[in-house]
Simulated assay, not measured.
Amino acid sequence: MRIYLPATLAMLHQVEADKELGPAPLTAFAVTPALREWYLDDDEEVLEYAAFTQAARAALRLLDADPLAPRRRVVLSADVPDREVTLHPDLDRAVVRSTAVIPLDRLASVHVDGAEAEPDVAAAVKVIMAADLGDEDAQFTVDGTDDHELEWYAVQELPALLEAFPAR
């Protein structure tokens, strides 16, 4: 199953050092039966994009918890065995948990905001909790991050990518 894991650049440094993403359980997003049932479009790519977008939104919450992390959303795409994934529709329709540590070789790609997204991401991070609590103005600010497509990187490019963002 392809899952999408929210992260930060600081977390990516740890993934590169450990050669794995953990510890388990890891909260992620995926095309689940609940997402298929809710979404009007049954195109697999559209459904994957919906799950990916939820992971990008969750990355804002991780950035809120880490005030020193660069203000760029990160999403890791990973392929994991179905038996290592549990569905959590009680949390949200696309939420899953990986019950095992994810080795680096299971990552399919890394997605990171470009520099032009930083001001919008920084503004969204400041109000993400208010948006979660129903503040419409805050939600408008958070939705502004959807205008920025995350850049795609091959897993082999991870060391070069991280050189641009030194560990603290």
Rank of each mutant, 00 (worst) to 15 (best):
L35S: 11
F29P: 01
R36I: 08
V95N: 00
E136Y: 01
H88S: 11
T27N: 02
R93G: 05
T145V: 09
A55K: 01
A154L: 13
M1S: 15
L104V: 07
V85S: 01
L133H: 13
E149S: 06
V142S: 10
E84Q: 14
A154D: 15
E45K: 06
P25L: 08
P159R: 03
Y4R: 01
V95R: 10
A122D: 10
D146M: 11
A55H: 03
Y39M: 09
E84M: 09
A17E: 13
E149K: 09
Q139Y: 11
H111N: 07
R71S: 04
L76A: 07
A164N: 06
D41K: 04
R83S: 15
E116H: 09
E157R: 15
R106C: 13
D135S: 08
R57G: 08
V46T: 14
A100S: 05
F165E: 09
E16M: 07
L91N: 03
L68Q: 14
A17Q: 13
F140M: 12
L26C: 07
R71V: 02
R83T: 15
E45S: 12
R73F: 06
A130P: 01
D146L: 15
D42Y: 07
P23N: 00
R2S: 11
W38V: 04
T53E: 15
A56T: 07
V127F: 07
R168N: 10
L158S: 07
Q139T: 15
A56F: 11
I3K: 01
L161C: 14
D18P: 00
V80H: 06
V127T: 12
P166C: 10
F165W: 07
V80F: 01
A28G: 12
T32M: 04
E118Q: 00
Y4N: 01
G22T: 02
P67H: 12
D90C: 08
V155S: 10
P159A: 02
A100Q: 13
P89F: 02
H13R: 03
Q139D: 09
A51P: 13
A17M: 05
A17L: 03
A94D: 09
A94M: 02
L9A: 07
D120F: 02
P67K: 13
V96W: 06
E48S: 12
L9R: 00
A130G: 05
V121S: 04
A130M: 08
V142K: 06
A160R: 15
Q139F: 13
V95C: 10
F140T: 15
E48K: 08
V142Q: 06
D120G: 08
A160S: 14
L5Y: 02
T8Y: 00
F29L: 11
L62E: 06
P23V: 01
D147H: 09
D113S: 01
Y153F: 15
D92A: 10
A154T: 09
P166H: 03
A34M: 00
E84N: 14
R71K: 11
